[in-house]
Computed example of a mutant assay.
Amino acid sequence: MSTTRTSVPVLDLSTARTADGAFTADFIAALRDAAHNVGFFQVTNYGAAAGQVQELLDTVAGFFRLPLDQRLELDNRTSAQFRGYTRLGKEITRGRADSREQIDFGPDREPLANVPAGRPFLRLQGRNQWPAGYPQLERVAMRWAALMSRIGADLLAGICVGLGLPQDYFAEPFEGTPAWMGKLVHYVGGLVPEAGNQGVGSHADYGFVTLLLQDMVGGLEVQPHGQHEWISVEPIPGALVVNLGEMLEVATNGYLMATIHRVTAPPAGVDRYSVPFFWSPRLDAVIGTVPLPAELAAEARGVSDDPDNPMLSSYGANVLKGWVRAHPETARIHYPGLAS
């Protein structure tokens, strides 16, 4: 990078398209700059209904106030899909416990009856776990997922245009059964001694486009490619924080980067809530290298592979690798051949 970034860009999604539906040149230019040079940006005016954001955050907070025994009825150790409730401090990032508890959910589908040998990632298709005594959680979370699916697809279309590709270039890997993922996360400080101040450790995301709703507590930091300094992502009420995943880094040979980010745990006694959503393709999708225009290909930085965590072009294999590392207890139960 030629200059050090000290903040992430903010894009107004209401300016993305003209009256006839075409993307505006100014929006595409801003999107390409943010995606290439930072890998993170915030989006406003994306079409949430009045009161939808606050209802979601309030409902998520209400779940985590339920007694622990009720939360544990959704224990993710019972799920081969890593769905349901993860206990405080039991998700691992870079070998260290995170100061968070959460619910993971995705498209609610029947598990596959027959999974071919060598494709264990297909077992990630399955059912969600929701609290029977708190039905509003499923309602508001799945309504949010429907909105995020539309926004994720729209932003991915804009990214394609910014890369000189047809806006539907990546449409096929998402057709039929996209394997999006959602999380409802509660960060706490001071209750997981082995975590220290790690809310979630530094990492990159697995898929294509991540859309994060965060409350006003703060703590998210990002580190753009080639930059030693971390950028604090200051909360904007109701805005979405957007970042790109490893599939886009692999597909563009590093022109787009899966930017490293982390969350600092809040102070003791302070609750932080966030709702990340990962717009991701079918589990069987394999993503090849895209044909970038020469001027963009010249700026591609190569894939930033970590020898201990290689990026894979198979989405399902890439995401299963991540789940196994992050949830070792669940992995040992359901994927003993993959667990360490």
Rank of each mutant, 00 (worst) to 15 (best):
S7V: 10
S7C: 06
S14K: 09
R17Q: 08
G21S: 06
T24G: 05
A25Q: 06
F27T: 03
I28F: 06
A29H: 11
L31S: 13
L31G: 10
R32A: 15
D33S: 06
A34H: 04
H36K: 10
F40Y: 10
F40A: 02
Q52G: 01
V53P: 09
G62C: 02
R65S: 13
L66Q: 14
N76G: 06
N76C: 07
S79T: 01
A80I: 11
Y85R: 01
R100D: 04
Q102N: 14
I103R: 05
D104I: 00
F105D: 12
D108E: 04
E110Y: 03
P111E: 04
V115N: 02
A117K: 14
P120G: 07
F121C: 14
N128C: 05
G133T: 08
L137K: 12
E138I: 03
E138P: 02
R139T: 15
V140I: 14
A141C: 14
R143T: 15
A146Q: 06
L147T: 15
L147S: 13
L147A: 12
I151F: 00
G152W: 05
D154G: 14
A157Q: 07
L163W: 03
L165T: 03
D168E: 15
Y169I: 01
P173I: 05
F174H: 01
G176K: 00
P178Q: 07
G190M: 08
L191K: 00
P193V: 12
P193S: 09
N197D: 13
S202E: 12
H203D: 02
A204D: 09
Y206Q: 11
F208Q: 09
V209K: 04
L212P: 06
M216R: 13
G219C: 09
P224G: 00
H225C: 07
Q227C: 07
Q227L: 03
E229M: 09
V233A: 07
E234P: 11
V241R: 07
N243E: 13
G245I: 04
M247T: 12
L248Y: 05
E249W: 07
T252V: 00
G254F: 13
A258C: 09
T264Y: 07
G269M: 06
F277Q: 01
R282F: 05
T289P: 08
P291S: 10
L296M: 09
A297Q: 11
R301M: 13
D305Q: 12
P307G: 12
D308F: 13
N309P: 07
M311T: 15
Y315S: 12
T330P: 02
T330S: 12
L338V: 05
S340Q: 10
